[in-house]
Design a protein around this nucleic acid. Structure first.
Length: 809
DNA sequence: CGAACCGTGCTTTTT
DNA sequence: GCACGGTTCG
């Protein structure tokens, strides 16, 4: 076991006071009285209740600067935690701007996870268990985590859990690994170790949850691995069982700052309380109205009862908003007012009037996307007497990521540049994870999960049977899969073609490992691994449309290695740093989820898809009732408050869901918008065109699409979520025949070469199928399609029908 | 063993 | 509508 050793415990400890006092930075300049108070109330617990756009980050970083300038703490004695790497980076940059290079000396500024990794690497050996050893009959052995542990991602986690579920003779279809992962995560968010699961929860997962959880933790120890939840939980465990260590850190971190406190879960809360327990110099910043992570264990309660937890806490409200126009602020405030149990803030602004929040209804989702695309273009050109806006200043914020597709399709068609934030992240992509698995086996030959992943990727003729043979060989000899594989080759247990391929793979790993130990340049080594293993070739031979992109990504991965000293260092960082920075060569519209938009701001914001069931999400309401609805409402609040100047909310009456047309009513949040601050753009006649009229139009709409169903009435009776305005009860989720809007309507599609067409032409479009040109206007064709969306989207060309034969589909 | 075909279930949100 | 897992066939 390692002992706590102060001499090497803290990087940057030698940073001198000189660096700090060198600059009398004007970090207090321009702060308003509330912000000043938040910065200068230095000792004891402080809760900064900061509304949206009130300069919270500014105050927080000024506070850090102040602590250092006043000599209250050296940079490395300040613990500043955020939730995202981005927020951490921003904070570091800002401190840097105020205090110069001092920010570099802040090793404890980071996300909860990254700080915990640091702590855990120091004290990993203190995490251990006595586990039964299958090789010693009835015997057991002690296992400890080692400081070079690996951090599992979701995929590894699921694979591990699947093994355990299968081993427990459970039906993995009825009891999917993802579900178990969710349950375990839920427990870890509460810092519950297997021994501490409350009886009421123990029934989870067919009564096997706790047993599987225990086995899972044992397996993790054997693999010398942790998952995300472990990072916090292990550290808490160490603090709770080793008072000397806790005391050292309590003394070391003289000031603690926490961003987005409303997002902390129980484990994070316990962790903070343990660390702040001595001096109580803790400053938490948050906004209860922006708590949108309840589903991943965040407890709004943490912020609501801060005063009780830290007696004598100073509560400072930041209420002057610097971001949005009064109309936007008023709309957001009115919506959030619908929630109960808020701490309550009254945001105000000195900004000029500006435009009202705009509301528009559309017939279907495609039309919504089309309208937003055109609106973005006209804003870019300059419209309604407004200055032209850059596409960089525009964002489309959706509730769920699948909503993005409609916009991507449309923007590709019209050639509007866009960027998607928060899609599948770089390091979560298939090819990247495969490549990393190779690296992992080279760096730690015992990494069975990684080996399993790539043993037959690319295909080497090693199917289930061969893999099983390797498993058995490894397990019965108590060795890793790689060693097991070598043994299989040596003993000819696996022969033939597969055996030869396996031998080549094993030899490869031996060779790469030798080179690694030899200290060979890691970038070269990485390239070599990917080439010699056949992985690069595999993608080169693949003729699917995404293959070139994947090769590109692999190149980028190798490039990313340049920033690290060696492969180990790279692998360590990767599991935590998951942002993919996009190149910013040309202005682009940003497309992201509402969750992803938190903390950001844009002059122009579009909020599409405000329909009941989509937003607020049906699932959220079904699972968490009023609590869920309130979280959705906070999400609406977050969305509106992202906008600086122009905020446009929209909804569609019809939308394709799972390839089926479904109709929906305007979101109940639309009813909560204050009329005085909203301009309704919807053409009169279509949806009523007025505020009170939305309800009427919705009723008409419901009547048109089949009226009340018994299914809905049952639901309505069940939960008071449904008991808001009476007409809303008309909503139905039941399947019923719907008109298929795109079939019946004329679609206006941009043509690549309009001159090739004349009216009456039969045309073929790879998305919409066959149709007929009924009008030509400027550079646009008006086409009536026979049938909507019947073929796969391969390209996006509109061609005269006689050429259509050349289009692959 | 692997390619091709068929059927099922799913979409909130993420460190 | 699509991805994924399972089954079938060569």
């Amino acid at each position: 076991m390692t002992q706590f050793d102060e001499s090497d415990a803290f990087e940057g400890a030698s940073l001198s006071a000189r660096a700090m006092s060198a600059r009398p930075a004007p970090y207090l300049d321009g702060l308003n009285p509330a912000q000043l108070q938040a910065v200068q109330t230095v000792d004891g617990p402080v809760l900064m209740l900061a509304g949206a756009g009130t300069g919270k980050t500014r105050a927080l970083t000024a506070r850090i600067a102040h602590l250092m300038a006043q000599g209250k703490a050296r940079p490395n004695e300040i613990l500043a935690v955020t939730f995202t790497n981005k927020a951490a980076r921003e904070m570091r940059d800002r401190v840097g701007a105020m205090m110069g290079e001092v920010a570099e000396g802040m090793p404890w500024l980071g996300t909860f996870h990254s700080v915990c990794v640091k702590l855990l690497r120091r004290h990993a050996e203190l995490v251990g268990r006595t586990v039964p050893d299958p090789l010693l009959e009835g015997g057991s052995r002690e296992l400890f985590l080692k400081s070079n542990f690996t951090i599992l991602d979701t995929d590894d986690q699921n694979r591990l859990l699947r093994q355990l579920i299968v081993a427990a003779d459970m039906d993995e279809k009825k009891w999917p690994p993802r579900m178990l992962a969710g349950i375990i995560d839920h427990w870890k968010n509460r810092a519950w170790t297997p021994d501490k699961i409350p009886a009421a929860e123990a029934q989870a997962f067919d009564g096997q949850g706790v047993a599987l959880y225990r086995q899972y933790q044992d397996r993790l120890l054997t693999l010398n691995a942790v998952d995300f939840g472990d990072l916090l939980m292990h550290v808490i465990g160490i603090f709770q069982t080793h008072d000397d260590i806790l005391q050292k850190y309590r003394n070391w971190f003289r000031y603690i700052l926490v961003d987005e406190y409303q997002d902390t879960n129980v484990a994070q809360y316990l962790w903070l309380r343990l660390l702040a327990g001595g001096h109580r110099n803790i400053c938490c910043v948050g906004d209860d109205d922006q708590s949108i992570y309840g589903w991943r264990g965040a407890e709004v309660g943490n912020i609501l009862r801060f005063e009780k937890d830290f007696e004598g806490a100073e509560i400072i409200r930041l209420e002057q908003n610097y971001r949005s126009t009064p109309h936007i602020l008023a709309a957001a405030s009115a919506v959030i007012a619908g929630n109960k149990g808020r701490l309550g803030k009254t945001l105000w602004t000195e900004a000029e009037e500006g435009e009202k929040v705009r509301l528009i209804g559309h017939w279907d989702g495609d039309e919504e996307a089309r309208w937003i695309g055109e609106e973005a273009e006209s804003l870019q050109r300059g419209t309604r007497g407004l200055d032209p806006k850059s596409l960089d200043d525009m964002a489309i914020l959706v509730r769920a990521s699948h909503q993005m597709r409609a916009f991507e399709d449309r923007f590709l068609t019209i050639g509007l540049p866009y960027r998607v934030i928060g899609g599948p992240r770089f390091y979560e992509r298939l090819e990247i994870r495969d490549a990393m698995a190779y690296f992992r086996v080279v760096v730690s030959p015992d990494d069975d999960l990684a080996f399993e992943r790539i043993v037959n990727t690319p295909k080497r003729g090693l199917g289930d049977k061969a893999q099983q043979t390797i498993q058995v060989m490894a397990r019965s000899n108590g060795i890793s899969l790689l060693e097991g594989a070598k043994l299989c080759v040596a003993t000819k247990t696996i022969g033939g073609k597969g055996g030869a391929a396996l031998k080549e793979l094993c030899d490869g790993f031996d060779r790469w490992r030798a080179e690694l130990l030899d200290g060979r340049d890691h970038i070269r080594l990485a390239e070599e691994i990917l080439d010699e293993s056949g992985y690069t070739t595999f993608w080169q031979n693949e003729k699917t449309p995404e293959a070139p992109g994947r090769l590109e990504n692999l190149k980028e991965l190798v490039k990313a290695l340049e920033g690290f000293e060696n492969l180990q260092g790279f692998l360590e960082h990767v599991s935590l740093i998951m942002d993919n920075e996009q190149s910013q060569d040309e202005p682009m519209v940003t497309l992201m989820t509402l969750h992803g938009a938190k903390g950001l701001e844009f002059p122009v914001v579009f909020l599409p898809g405000w329909e009941d069931g989509l937003f607020p999400s049906q699932r959220s309401m079904d699972e968490s009732g009023v609590k869920g609805l309130e979280e959705e409402r906070r999400l609406a609040y977050v969305g509106i408050t992202r906008a600086e100047e122009i905020c446009t909310i929209s909804f569609a009456a019809n939308r394709r869901v799972y390839g089926q047309w479904q109709s929906a009513l305007p979101s109940r949040f639309i009813d909560e918008l204050p009329e005085a601050h909203v301009e309704v753009l919807t053409p009169p006649g279509l949806y009523g065109g007025g505020f009170g009229a939305i309800g009427m139009a919705a009723a008409q709409h419901a009547a048109m699409s089949g009226g009340v169903t018994s299914n809905l009435q049952e639901q309505a009776a069940k939960a008071d979520v449904y008991n808001s305005p009476g007409w809303r009860r008309l909503q139905s989720n039941a399947t019923r025949p719907l008109r298929q809007p795109s079939e019946a309507r004329n679609l206006t599609i941009d043509a690549t070469a309009v001159s090739a067409f004349t009216e009456g032409d039969r045309v073929f479009h790879t998305k919409f199928g066959y149709g007929e040109v009924i009008a030509i206007e400027g550079d646009k064709l008006d086409v009536e399609f026979d049938k909507a969306g019947s073929k796969k989207i391969v390209g996006r060309f509109l061609l005269p029908a006689e050429q259509a034969g050349d289009v692959p589909f």
